[in-house]
Design a protein around this nucleic acid. Structure first.
Lengths: 259, 259
DNA sequence: AAGTCTATATCGAAG
DNA sequence: CTTCGATGTAGACTT
């Protein structure tokens, strides 16, 4: 068992038992600010994923402004310019920077300062470290794409494959059909040939979805010849009480379907 | 310079130069799955912030479902139950679990498996590791709250402090005044005593904001006696072309104000 | 607990 | 480039 000293740089090559692992991560514990600066610069240069844990203050200036007092946080810097500042709680980072920016690091007042700048909108994020507990640079290449099911897109695919899920005899004619009020999820006809507008929601819907469907139908009625009959169907797992009464008022229909 | 062997557990106490630092972080490089499991369990038990870097697959099942094939990722587990799976790009984690869940870890097929379960909605996230490159457990207590300026709330405070920013003679009477269409940001009267509805947006607004303001005004006209005159003012840094014409059509006004 | 609204929303698609 | 809608939205606040 090795006991770390101060500062300690650890280079290591992974023991490979099943296929090639990624390049050597570089980890430094309790570095001096000077040493941390060198490691940060080098990691950014190499396009590594960089994590820093330590006590810091954070300033953000851009679409809004914020100041975060001194405390322990985990900072993640990605090669695409993303910056994340995480505290011990919450899913959302307490501060962040979206992809596309650039990182700069320097010693300010003899302490490590990491800055992220992003143009359009012009935004800066500055992390001032009081001390760095641990710094790690990882070589990471992850080509795999995620496959997601149960989304609205997935629901649409299922209805197109089996239109009877909406109503027996329903025939989809188009998806994303454009109207003045936006694109209709599924446009089609019922068994009698009456035009139908189907709006999909993957979860319980409120009044906003009813308004959206209503706007589509009004737009469609204007687009089609006057007096054209158009049915509107909201497809969702469930509906709020207020939305249900709005549907009734507007002569719209609801079909319950799990995503 | 120390060269890591396999596995290596590093316990260290930070050198304190300015006030007490947090407890000792625990970092393990290229652990066996068995060793990783012990460290994960111990870190969760202690309420530490845990980071894992390594090659893994990720399964999610809950509001939707997803599968993520094998690749290098950074996993962050927080003591509040938050789980984050980050790849080398993007601000959003590729998979995640909101706070409130519980972690379980075990060896499945002799490999480290970390699971997160969350009730209501019932959701599970499972990370299967092919190998762990590095594992770190941090003791973290961050009491500091973030102070944010330049938000819509901030804009409202400024207008209440100086109503002339909207219009000379404007008198705010209420904030968050309820209507059937929702709450009005600032409700008041102009120099002539005419009712005013002020809608605030901290950034460039599109047609949606005009629609929102229009709904508030219609609701208010219904609430007040018939024929009541109501002015609507949209306060934002700027407005899109389409929104500007909608404002003109609806007889609404626009005041440019930076957040 | 459920509904509503905001966000430094982020993200992707479409015009 | 803007505009628009979906998100496993998250998170805060009201009822």
């Amino acid at each position: 068992m090795a006991v770390g000293f101060y500062p300690t740089v650890v280079y290591f090559r992974a023991v490979t038992t099943e296929g090639e692992r990624s390049g050597e991560p570089r980890t430094v514990r309790t570095p001096t600010h000077h040493e941390a600066l060198a490691q940060v610069k080098s990691a950014i240069e190499r396009g590594n994923l960089l994590t820093l844990f330590g006590c810091c203050t954070v300033e953000y200036d851009g679409r809004a402004e914020s100041y975060l007092g001194s405390g322990d946080r985990l900072i993640v810097l990605k090669p695409d310019g993303t910056a994340l500042v995480h505290t011990e709680e919450g899913q959302k980072p307490v501060n962040w920077q979206p992809p596309g920016g650039t990182f700069e690091s320097e010693l300010a007042d003899e302490r490590l300062l990491v800055r992220s700048r992003r143009p359009d909108p012009d935004e800066t994020l500055a992390v001032h470290f009081e001390y760095v507990t641990q710094l790690s640079a990882f070589d990471v290449t992850d080509a795999k794409e995620i496959s997601l099911a149960g989304s609205e897109e997935d629901l649409r695919q299922r209805i197109l494959a089996d239109p009877d899920l909406v109503e027996k005899g329903f025939t989809p004619l188009a998806t994303e059909r454009q109207t003045a009020a936006g694109a209709i999820d599924i446009y089609g006809k019922d068994a009698d040939g009456t035009t139908m507008v189907v709006e999909l929601k993957r979860r319980r819907v409120g009044p906003d979805a009813v308004g959206q469907l209503r706007r589509y139908i009004n737009a469609l009625r204007r687009d089609l010849h006057a007096g054209a009959e158009v049915r509107g169907v909201l497809v969702a797992p469930s509906v709020t009480e207020r939305a249900r009464s709005m549907l009734a008022e507007s002569g719209l229909e609801f079909v319950s379907l799990e995503p």
